[in-house]
């Protein structure tokens, strides 16, 4: 079907790389967080020396904070700021965690919605501080207060969950083919349905990944068929440079999608 395998191989390899810089802004999330607040807090948690962090999404919402020693020191500005406790917090130095209205911080930090596709950060160094090392609120404490798992979406966790899903669907399927780096890496034996086998080459699998997410490569699952449980479907899952396609003769569509989500994908 495809005679452009060289190009698709490059695309798949690019998918495994960090292609997230744009004009000094870096896309955060590993790869995309379901809750952007996790990415914001993780960025603060990874900031040791004092820096001003500016966050923005592709809808124009912005959030600017000062951070250091893995703590939130000050919320400089936020698109969502209004009146009341959250608005009053803007610009204030956060000194002692016990004196700070955590809920108001949460209102300001939630500048981005779970549906936001891209959240970017720009980091600028601030002058070295004297005795302020322990001031502010630790990002880990904020994560605990907001029930956000900072390690929830690490690459390793995603890869582990993806492979668990692949193993489960391999067992359910009548045939499967695995592509890595644009080449077939493995297949069920035997793939007797040659029409099905010929329909799915590396390019067909990779297009599910590159269709709308050319910058970062989050895990994607697609299920094609009648949409009716118990009927035949094809499913494709991609993550980084790996793509797997399955032939499911009696798919439980709702169950498969629920399992994908249960695994945190």
């Amino acid at each position: 079907m495809s005679d452009n395998r060289g190009l698709i191989g490059k695309l798949l390899k690019l998918g495994a790389a960090e292609a997230t810089d744009r004009d000094g802004w870096r896309r955060i999330g590993r790869p995309l967080d379901r809750d952007p607040l996790a990415a914001v807090l993780r960025e603060i948690d990874e900031t040791q020396l004092p820096r001003e962090l500016s966050f923005r999404n592709d809808q124009g919402q912005e959030l600017r904070v000062e951070a250091g020693n893995r703590r939130l020191r000050r919320i400089v500005s936020a698109s969502v700021a209004g009146s009341g406790p959250a608005g009053a917090l803007l610009g204030q130095q956060l000194v002692h965690a016990s004196d700070i209205d955590i809920d108001a911080i949460g209102d300001l930090l939630r500048a981005f919605q779970p549906g936001d596709r891209e959240v970017w950060v720009h980091s600028e160094q601030l002058p070295q501080e004297g005795d302020r090392a322990q001031t502010g609120v630790a990002a880990a404490a904020l994560a605990g207060a907001f029930s956000v798992d900072l390690d929830d979406r690490t690459d390793a966790n995603l890869q582990h969950a993806f492979e668990a899903f692949v193993a489960e669907l391999n067992a359910l399927s009548s045939a499967w083919i695995r592509y890595e780096g644009g080449k077939q890496a493995a297949a069920s034996e035997p793939v007797t349905d040659t029409a099905w086998r010929d329909r799915w080459d590396a390019e067909d699998v990779a297009r599910f990944q590159v269709a709308d997410d050319p910058v970062g490569f989050a895990p994607i699952l697609c299920i094609l068929g009648s949409g009716v449980d118990g009927e035949p479907h094809d499913a494709v899952a991609v993550l980084g440079g790996t793509g797997v396609v399955w032939r499911l003769d009696a798919a439980e569509v709702a169950g498969i999608t629920a399992r994908w989500r249960d695994l945190g994908l």
């Binding site: 379901r34 599910f208 989050a218 895990p219 697609c222 299920i223 094609l224 068929g225 949409g227 999608t257």
Partner: peptide, 13 residues
């Protein structure tokens, strides 16, 4: 022809 296509990304179904 496929009658439905279900696409799950990290942020959307």
């Amino acid at each position: 022809l496929p009658q439905t296509a279900i696409r799950l990304s990290a942020t959307e179904t």
